[in-house]
């Protein structure tokens, strides 16, 4: 009986363990990074020289919308950040985009929001005027 209960809660328990792997300071560090700018991107490489096609696509989308300034964090230079950001966002891949301190998604979501026009609205909500109408 108890065994069955434990089997059922196992995925949750695993997630709790993974969350505990990140210290409070590390969590706070990411919290302050995502709040430091309206747009914050965790990516491979830097906007001037992305090291992954998906990260580059995200930068290109912002470029198309005329967003010149955003904060970018290169996870290839910080292994701890590379793992912690996945845990923090509960998102398994890089790049990761935050707008107004809220997690938006990765490359696929950015491309689809760009295509559907939702990205223009999201930027406008945060006082950023897109070049694309």
């Amino acid at each position: 009986m108890l065994g069955a209960v434990f089997r059922n809660v196992r995925p949750v328990a695993m997630r709790v363990c993974r969350t505990l792997a990140m210290s409070a300071e590390q969590k706070e560090d990411i919290n302050s990074r995502i709040k430091a700018d309206k747009i914050v991107v965790f990516m491979k490489g830097v906007p001037e020289e992305p090291r992954c096609g998906f990260s580059r696509a995200v930068c290109q989308i912002f470029e198309m919308h005329g967003v010149e300034k955003f904060s970018a964090h290169n996870v290839l230079e910080d292994d701890e950040l590379r793992e912690n950001i996945k845990e923090f966002s509960d998102w398994p891949t890089i790049p990761q985009v935050y707008v107004g301190g809220e997690f938006v998604g990765g490359c696929d979501i950015m491309i689809q929001m760009h295509q559907s026009g939702e990205l223009v609205d999201l930027l406008a909500e945060h006082g950023i005027k897109s070049l694309i109408k």
Partner: peptide, 11 residues
């Protein structure tokens, strides 16, 4: 289509 690789996964 997915974008081309830029080599980052090797790092």
């Amino acid at each position: 289509k997915s974008p081309p690789c830029l080599g980052g996964s090797k790092l």
